[in-house]
Structure formats: structure tokens, C-alpha cells
């Protein structure tokens, strides 16, 4: 289907229709349909092997769907992958920072890769340094930063080009409880500015901070709603209980 023919709405960041990925006779992502609104914090949950990473790879334009449609930032993942890459940010638990480069050099590098203009780069670097309270650390080598700071820096760099959507793949693993909470304050502030946040996590308390949660079991969506509604529907005290209830029915590892 032609991407322009597909009805893309302005307040929608991601829309999928029957998105499917097969490897041989194994269906990793099985006919998933959902949409994510602009500025929404969308939690993507599932057990290990449920198909989260495969789905994210397709949404980032790194892997072609076997069938179905996915529109990300207005572009078709199957035919306009390069456009998508320019309009999204991505951060995983393995922060892609260069230890032997300084804080500002890391920012400069990524801004260059995204093809940003010199003037805008200088402006954005200062803006981020201020936001993070990093002004005095501009010339610090990244390897000497504590992990919580690296995490905030990696996140800010993933949105240095002000993408429409940022994908966060288990961004908070391993940091201390206070840093984990500070990081979520940063996520809130980002969503507030209209950037859509698509996040996976294994911390079920963090799932509560999402506007909506999508649960994946064996490549299929088994639940999609606000945390509150999910708890009501499954008469569960918290999202951890909902997760256990749903993910227990897996046939896959």
C-alpha cells in the first residue's frame, strides 16, 4: 500500500495495522495493531522473548515487516526507513556513549551524524547542558561520569535532534532508586514537550508511570490500556500482578 494513501493523522505518532514478522516458520510478532498518540508515554511490556525487540526494530526501520503496516512519524517502515531514522531517537540500556570523548564531544558527534546545522548544534548543546545542570561537566570525559549521569546524557543525546518519537529500550536497568526516579522526571518533561516516548521496562512500578501500556505475549497484544483500567479489568492491585496473570499464559520462551 502507498504510504500517502494511508490515512495518517496529525496527532498520531505511531500506527500499526496487522504488523507481523516471521523468521522461517516462527512468528516473532503476530498481527499487532495499535496506535500511539503524540506526546504519549507508551509502555511496551512483555516477557523475554515475547517479541518486543523485533517489534521495536521494525518500528525503527531496521527490520522489514513480513506483512502488515507500520507508520512511524508519518513514514512507512517498509519503504521509508531512512526518513524514519531521521525522525526518531533511540536509547538502550547499553548507552551508546564514547567513554574517551568529552561530554560535549559526544553531543557534537551525534548532532553531526543527524546532519544538524552548526548553529543549532551549539544552541542544543548549551540547552542540554543547562537542562541537566551539566554546565561544569562540559569538558569531562564520559568515562568518569557516574552511571546515573551517563544515563541522563545518553537520553538527552537520543533527542538532541528533537525527534518526534524516542524509543527507550530498558533505559533504567541497574541504576540506584533515586537516579531511576530522576530519569523518569526527565521522561515526563520530554513528553510534556510533545515528544512521544515509547518505552520498555522490567520495573513494574515504572509501568505505572506510563499513560498507556501494551502487553505482548507470544508476539500478540493481549492487553492495551491505561494502568488504572488494566488493574480494574484484571482486578489486580498493581501492574506486576497484571503482568504475571497475562505473561503466565505463554507458550514460548
Amino acid at each position: 500500500m502507498n504510504s500517502t494513501a494511508y490515512n495518517y493523522q496529525n496527532d498520531i505518532s505511531i500506527r500499526t495495522e496487522g504488523l507481523t514478522k516471521r523468521f522461517g516458520n516462527f512468528t516473532a510478532v503476530d498481527n499487532i495493531t495499535f496506535h500511539v498518540k503524540k506526546g504519549e508515554i507508551f509502555g511496551f511490556l512483555g516477557a523475554n522473548g515475547a517479541g518486543k525487540t523485533t517489534a521495536i526494530k521494525m518500528l525503527c526501520g531496521l527490520s522489514k515487516p513480513t506483512s502488515g503496516i507500520a507508520m512511524v512519524a508519518g513514514y512507512d517502515v517498509a519503504t521509508q526507513a531512512e526518513h524514519i531514522k531521521k525522525n526518531i531517537g533511540y536509547m538502550s540500556q547499553k548507552f551508546a556513549l564514547y567513554d574517551d570523548l568529552k561530554v560535549w564531544e559526544n553531543m557534537r558527534l551525534y548532532a553531526g551524524i543527524y546532519g544538524m546545522k552548526e548553529k543549532i548544534i551549539a544552541y542544543r548543546i548549551n540547552e542540554i547542558l543547562m537542562q541537566l545542570g551539566f554546565e561544569n561537566e562540559k569538558n569531562t570525559f564520559v568515562k568518569t561520569l557516574p552511571i546515573g549521569w551517563k544515563q541522563k546524557l545518553a537520553f538527552s543525546i537520543s533527542i538532541i535532534h528533537q525527534p518526534e518519537i524516542v524509543f527507550l529500550d530498558e533505559p533504567t536497568g541497574g541504576v540506584d532508586p533515586a537516579a531511576r526516579r530522576q530519569f523518569w522526571e526527565l521522561i515526563y518533561a520530554t513528553a510534556e514537550k510533545g515528544i512521544t516516548v515509547f518505552v520498555t521496562t522490567h520495573y513494574m512500578d515504572e509501568a505505572e508511570y506510563c499513560n498507556r501500556i501494551c502487553m505482548l505475549v507470544d508476539g500478540k497484544i493481549v492487553a492495551l490500556d491505561s494502568p488504572k483500567k488494566l488493574k480494574d479489568t484484571f482486578s489486580a492491585q498493581n501492574i506486576d500482578k497484571v503482568f504475571r496473570l497475562l505473561a503466565r499464559n505463554t507458550n514460548r520462551t
Binding site: G46, A47, E170, G173, H202, D240, F243
Partner: peptide, 13 residues
């Protein structure tokens, strides 16, 4: 050493 890092809640249990 961190046997459950990156492991989902069900597998952790």
C-alpha cells in the same frame, strides 16, 4: 552476580 538483570518479572520469580 546479577542473575536477574534484564530478566522479566515472571522469569525472575
Amino acid at each position: 552476580d546479577e542473575p536477574t538483570t534484564g530478566v522479566d518479572p515472571v522469569s525472575r520469580k
